[in-house]
Design a protein around this nucleic acid. Structure first.
Lengths: 149, 149
DNA sequence: AGTGAGATTTTGAATCATTCTAAACAGGGA
DNA sequence: TCCCTGTTTAGAATGATTCAAAATCTCACT
C-alpha cells in the first residue's frame, strides 16, 4: 500500500501543477506518491497496478493523463523519449543522434572517442556496458550535420 | 528507384551474413540497398515503401525480418533500442540510465556536470539541445547503483 | 444552496507498430 | 527427384498508447 505524500512533496506537487494552471487531484496525488515511493522506473502499467491498491476505481487512462501532466510540468522524467517507430541506420561508426523536435528528422553526430571513454568511466564498478546510446533532442537551425555521409 | 549494391557493399553483406550462417537473398539485397542509398534513419515502414519500388511483392514482415537480421550481424544499427513500455522516474537530477540486459531493470547513473558539458560541446553550430538522453545497455554484477534513493 | 464553465476522470473503442503463425517457397545436397 | 532447412508471405494477434464521448468534480459567482 502506498503511503501518503509528505507535506513537502505535496507542496512540490501543488506548486508545479499550479505553474501550468493545473490542480492537485486525489488521482494525481496517488500517482505521484507511487512514483516517489518506489523509484524503480516503473512502466505505466506498473504505476497503474500500484496506484490501484490505494484507489481501486482509478483508470488506466487517468494514469496516462497524470504522467503526461507530470512530465509536462517537469515533475517527472520519461525514461524513453523516443516512442515512435524504431529507426535504422547503416552508420556503424560510433555516433550520437540528434532529433530535431521541429522536423522529427534524426541527424548523426560524430562522437569523439575521448567522450565515449569518459562516459564509460562513470559507470560504478560491476556495471558492464555493451552499448551506449546518446540522443539529443532539440532544434537544428541549418541543414544536415552529415548530409548523406 | 533504388540502385543496386556496389560490388563492395554486396561483399560486405555477403560476409556479414555468412558469419552468422545466413544467406544473401534478393529481399535482403534490396533492403540493404535502401538503407545505404538514403541515410536518413528511415522507419521500418519507410524502408518498406522504398524497397517496394524495386520489388513490388515484398512484404512488410520480410522487411522486419531483414532488419532484425542485419542488426543481429552488426550491419546496421537500431536508433531506438528501448522499444518496450515507456518508464518514468521522479529523479530530476541529471543522470543517465543503465538497462541491465539480464533483468530488464533500469538503474540511475549519476552524471557529472563536466561530462554533460563536454557532450553539449560536440554539437555542430546551429544545433541547440534541450535534452540529452544517455542510456547504457549491459550487465550489472551487483545490486543497485542507487538502491532506492 | 444553486448554477454554469471548465477541467478531470472514466469507459471502451480505435490506432499503430510490432510479433506471431502457418502455409508456401527456394535452393542445395543425397 | 526428394528431402531439409532457411526464407518469405499474408494475415491474424498482441500490446502500448491515444482518442472520443459521457459522467463527474471544482470552484467562482449568485
Amino acid at each position: 500500500m502506498i503511503q501518503n505524500l509528505t507535506e513537502h512533496d505535496r507542496e512540490n506537487l501543488q506548486e508545479s501543477l499550479a505553474k501550468s494552471g493545473q490542480k492537485v487531484t486525489p488521482q494525481r496525488e496517488v500517482v505521484f506518491a507511487v512514483l516517489l515511493s518506489k523509484r524503480d522506473h516503473p512502466t505505466v502499467d506498473e504505476v497503474f497496478q500500484r496506484a490501484r491498491e490505494s484507489m481501486p476505481g482509478l483508470s488506466l487512462a487517468t494514469v496516462y493523463n497524470c504522467l503526461e501532466t507530470f512530465v509536462g510540468c517537469g515533475l517527472v522524467r520519461q525514461v524513453n523519449h523516443e516512442r515512435e517507430s524504431t529507426r535504422y541506420c547503416p552508420n556503424l561508426a560510433p555516433h550520437a543522434h540528434f532529433r530535431d523536435a521541429a522536423t522529427g528528422r534524426v541527424h548523426d553526430i560524430e562522437l569523439p572517442p575521448a567522450i565515449l571513454q569518459s562516459l564509460r568511466s562513470i559507470l560504478p564498478p560491476g556495471f558492464d556496458s555493451e552499448a551506449i546510446e546518446i540522443s539529443f533532442l532539440g532544434r537544428a537551425q541549418g541543414g544536415d550535420a552529415h548530409p548523406t555521409l
